[in-house]
Amino acid sequence: MKSLVEHIAKALVDQPDDVLVTEQQEGDTVCLTLTVHPSDVGKVIGKQGRTAKAMRSLVYAAAMQEKQRVRLNIVD
């Protein structure tokens, strides 16, 4: 999951070197935190949150195949 989020985020932003994805296990849920450069936050979130929603949908779909629960947080 971590590599999927990292790959998608690096394709969206202007400063891919500042993309950082951390993974934590919280009970039966994997919590992924995506951190990008402050100037790239808008690109990752998108208009009305559509890009973030699409990214979460992809991650959730991939997690369903692995029978996992995943949460994706986006921070600047």
Score class of each variant (00 low, 15 high):
T33N: 11
K67W: 11
P38I: 01
I74K: 05
N73C: 09
V36L: 08
A54G: 08
V13S: 06
E6M: 03
V21A: 02
L32T: 08
S39N: 14
L32F: 00
H7W: 14
E66W: 06
L72C: 02
V75R: 15
P38S: 01
T29K: 13
V21M: 03
E6C: 04
L4S: 10
E6L: 03
D17G: 15
K2Q: 13
K47I: 03
V75Y: 05
K43I: 13
L32E: 01
L12H: 09
V36G: 02
M55K: 02
V36C: 06
K2D: 02
A9Q: 11
K53I: 03
V44A: 09
Q25A: 14
G46Y: 12
A52V: 00
T29S: 06
K2L: 11
T51H: 04
L12E: 07
A54R: 00
G46V: 12
E26T: 00
L34Q: 01
A62S: 09
P16W: 06
S39K: 12
M64A: 13
A62T: 01
K47Y: 09
T35A: 11
T29G: 12
M1I: 14
E66I: 09
K67Q: 14
N73Q: 11
D28H: 08
A52T: 01
K43V: 10
L58M: 10
A54E: 09
H7Q: 15
Q15N: 15
K53M: 12
A11H: 04
S3Q: 11
A63Y: 01
H7S: 14
D14S: 14
A61M: 01
K43F: 04
M1K: 01
R69K: 15
Q68E: 09
Q65T: 13
V21P: 05
T35D: 14
K53N: 12
T51V: 13
V19P: 08
Q48K: 10
L72W: 05
H7E: 11
A62I: 12
